[in-house]
Design a protein around this nucleic acid. Structure first.
Length: 431
RNA sequence: GUGAGAGUAGCUCAGCUGGUUAGAGCACCAGAUUGUGGUUCUGGGGGUCGCGGGUUCGAAUCCCGUCUUUCACCCCA
């Protein structure tokens, strides 16, 4: 019986595993150099945890199960609720600011398509307990710090930044009632994806007042925060929101990533729990879905039964990122190939005892070492060493029987030296 | 949930107006090479042509169904 892989999952053969590790190692080291600490939670939680903040549509996209005690559980589709739960549990003893990161494996029962699978990895970073815009800037900076490190330039990706708070205050300034804001978010979030006339038609449906609709369109077309005053009168509320945005941009400029960043009022971020700054990073061409997205969510900890503590963060999945890195040729050039420190070969089947012992002693010294299971000729063994990308080969031959000497061959230069086995191993030391 | 495309060797694909025993490149294995690898040459293994049914003397090829997969829509935490 042949059993196929499950829809939307991936098998990681060694070459794919090397890519995955390289991506995740990069995420982790950039997190650490930006001052974040790693955490993780369980891979499943109570189903309820995801029903609290989400509608039925999202619950339908959960992989859920029942344990033998009848508990309703779900495999995590995101880690933010777990983070909220963990932080709430120890909120009084955690030093602030809380700067945490994680690289959880997540599952969503969505229909797979380009850049979206049912099982994936997602880099999450969050700053909890700080309500100033500099924290939002740091989250954006850290995301860009990673992308820049793997070789993506300002000509490849763009961080598009807006603010829920700014959007809300502008819409209110234009005369949209509080109760209609959520519907507006859902609509405005679609603007970048829809043809202009389709969007205008949908806008006209939700906002019958032509003057209001025109001003909303004007706002959505802005590419600078300085121009907002041309669309709407600057009340106190809007001024504060603008000032916060200016702080974000000023901080990003000071940190040296301003060329990656742009104000973009079309970034709204679906039906999420965002309350302030929101951002997405896209490929410049706009051919792929977002590489990452995030923003400020000041009410989430409270919604999960904790105190009211501000928070901001972002998530970056591995699927879109990998497609983009591959397109730009940044994977093949940077993901390390399999490498072996030593391949131990013997010139004759009579020397195999020494082969096993030398290989074991190399391994005890912390070096990776392989040998051939087949007693083929030396030529065969060197071929095998090459295919395993061995840095050096140890050749055991007659001089080992005569004088206990090994031949050490550098596989890059081809140079060979002879050295007494004990001296060779003692010079290696331990690593 | 809706729509469109694609399923032939491990991978990328050719073959398709029905006609001997289904092919190529890459990969894999072996030999050329009994103390020297990467290159090269030679050979080899590997297929229920996704599955089921139908038409036909004859189906990888035509028809129907089904499954899988890719892409787009919905959604996107």
């Amino acid at each position: 019986m042949k059993i196929p892989p499950v829809k939307g999952t991936r098998d990681f053969y060694p070459p794919e595993m090397a890519r995955r590790n390289w991506i995740i190692d990069g995420w982790k080291s950039v997190s650490i150099r930006n001052g974040f600490e790693e955490y993780d939670g369980p891979i499943f939680e109570y189903l309820k945890m995801y029903q609290v903040k989400s509608g039925d549509e999202i619950v339908e996209q959960l992989f859920s199960l029942q344990d033998r005690g009848g508990r309703d559980l779900a495999i995590r589709p995101e880690i933010t609720p777990t983070l909220a739960r963990m932080v709430n549990q120890q909120i009084n003893s955690l030093p602030r600011p809380i700067k945490w990161f994680s690289v959880p494996r997540l599952c969503r029962a969505e229909r797979p398509q380009k850049g979206r699978l049912r099982e994936f990895f997602q880099w999450n970073i969050d700053i909890i307990g700080i309500d100033s815009p500099e924290a939002d800037a740091e989250v954006i900076f850290t995301s860009l710090d990673y992308l820049r490190r793997v070789g993506l330039t300002a000509a490849d990706v763009r961080a598009k930044i807006s603010s829920r708070r700014l959007l809300a205050s502008v819409l209110r300034g234009i005369g949209i009632d509080e109760g209609r804001l959520d519907g507006m978010y859902a609509l405005l979030d679609k603007k970048a994806k829809l043809p202009a006339d389709t969007f205008d038609a949908m806008l006209a449906e939700q906002v019958p007042d032509k003057g209001q609709a025109a001003r909303i369109s004007d706002f959505m077309a802005l590419d600078s925060i300085h121009e907002i005053q041309r669309v709407v009168a600057l009340g106190d509320e809007i001024r504060v929101a603008i000032e916060q945005m200016q702080n974000v941009f000023a901080t990003l400029e000071l940190m040296g990533v301003a060329d990656y960043c742009a104000f973009d009022p079309t970034i709204v971020r679906g039906l999420a729990y965002y309350t302030g700054v929101v951002f997405e990073i896209h490929d410049i061409v706009g051919e792929l879905r977002a590489i990452c997205g995030g923003g400020r969510y000041d009410n989430l900890l409270r919604d999960f039964g904790g105190p009211s503590i501000p928070a901001t963060g972002m998530g970056m999945g591995d699927c879109v990122l990998e497609i983009l890195l591959h397109q730009k040729g940044l994977l093949d050039s940077q993901v390390p190939r399999r490498r072996l420190d030593y391949f131990v070969a013997c010139a004759d089947g009579a020397f195999t005892k020494a082969m096993y012992s030398v290989a074991a002693r190399l391994r005890a010294c912390g070096r990776s070492a392989n040998f051939s299971y087949k007693l083929g000729g030396l030529s065969k063994q060197l071929k095998e060493a090459s295919s395993q990308n061995a840095s050096r080969c140890i050749i055991i031959g007659q001089e080992y029987l005569d004088r206990q000497e090994l031949v050490v061959k550098d596989m890059t230069s081809g140079e060979q030296t002879q050295i007494h086995v004990d001296r060779f191993l003692s010079e290696l030391g331990t690593t």
